[in-house]
């Protein structure tokens, strides 16, 4: 049995491998190739070497967008995870209506990004209109608007993951700690948090990559206004494609750089948080 599985393994894997190549690897390779060319459509690409990359980094918009994205990501990763974890703690205490609360907190995640962006645009502009302003008045309004929006959308989802983690914390350990006279803060730091590290890994990974790649919400909420000051990387790439004649290749080069950054950050983060995971 074992042997025949080994022998026939390529045949069974083949359909998936083909699908993977067609839909992931091939476009990915083509994307990298296109970043070295000048093109209007896929079929008339002309090789231009590194000039697209040079243009991409000379574009101040790209660097500004990168900084804005980094700032946004740091703030939202911290706020989302802290709040989601606190909510998860609260909703594993066996309060009345726990299930109802969990559902309600989870629901924003089911709404699409564009719709969410417009809803929050209405709310934020509605509030700011008391001061006679709108969200495009200052870049910091857009920044905090995006942070609030992102928190509202992702907290519920992360909360569910943390709840699952917290429920898996061994009651034996907690009971032993109680007998040893540990305070609840000590229990949290010494037992619960180390035990839920796998959840922390996956939650930081998800929030990090989602914040970094944010597009729909950015487009709907501010579209980069005022000016390009609240433009994040993905939106900048998108706008590069059609902002200037012949800039498709530059947009593609930016997309490749974007991929490398996201991959580097995500892998580093995984490596760091995984070290903290403990076997129970």
């Amino acid at each position: 049995m074992q042997k025949s599985i080994k022998r026939w393994f390529p045949v069974f894997v083949l359909p998936t491998v083909i699908a993977f190549i067609i839909s992931f690897l091939a476009p990915f390779a083509m994307g990298i190739y296109l970043s070295f060319t000048k093109f209007t459509t896929m079929t008339d690409a002309k090789f231009v070497g590194f000039s697209n990359y040079i243009k991409a980094f000379n574009d101040s918009g790209f660097v500004d967008a990168l900084w804005f994205t980094v700032k946004f990501t740091i703030v939202s990763v911290i706020t989302i995870n802290v709040i989601a974890f606190l909510l998860a703690m609260l909703l594993t205490k066996g309060l009345r209506g726990t299930n109802g609360f969990r559902t309600i907190f989870f629901m924003p995640n089911l709404i699409g990004g564009i719709v969410l962006g417009y809803i929050w645009l209405m709310i934020i502009n509605g509030v700011l209109s008391f001061a006679g302003l709108s969200i495009t008045y200052d870049a910091s309004y857009g920044f905090w608007g995006l942070v609030i929006l992102m928190n509202w959308q992702l907290i519920g989802y992360m909360m569910i993951i943390y709840i699952a983690g917290i429920q898996n914390v061994s009651p034996d350990l907690l009971e032993a700690a109680d007998i040893d006279g540990a305070t609840s803060f000590q229990k949290l730091i010494k037992i619960t948090i180390p035990q839920v590290m796998p959840s922390v890994t996956i939650c930081t990974f998800l929030t990090l990559t989602n914040s970094f790649k944010l597009f729909d919400q950015n487009l709907a909420l501010t579209a980069g206004a005022p000016g390009r000051q609240t433009q994040m990387l993905a939106l900048d790439i998108y706008n590069t494609f059609y902002g200037r004649v012949g800039y498709q290749g530059v947009g593609q080069a930016k997309a490749v750089v974007f991929f490398i950054i996201v991959a580097a950050i995500a892998l580093t983060q995984l490596y760091l948080t995984k070290r903290k995971e403990v076997e129970s």
């Binding site: 839909s23 992931f24 690897l25 476009p27 990915f28 083509m30 994307g31 296109l34 990559t209 790649k213 790439i237 593609q252 997309a255 490749v256 974007f258 991929f259 996201v262 991959a263 995500a266």
Partner: peptide
């Protein structure tokens, strides 16, 4: 990660 990259392409 591949999905995110290929979505661009």
């Amino acid at each position: 990660l591949c999905v995110s990259a290929s979505a661009m392409a």
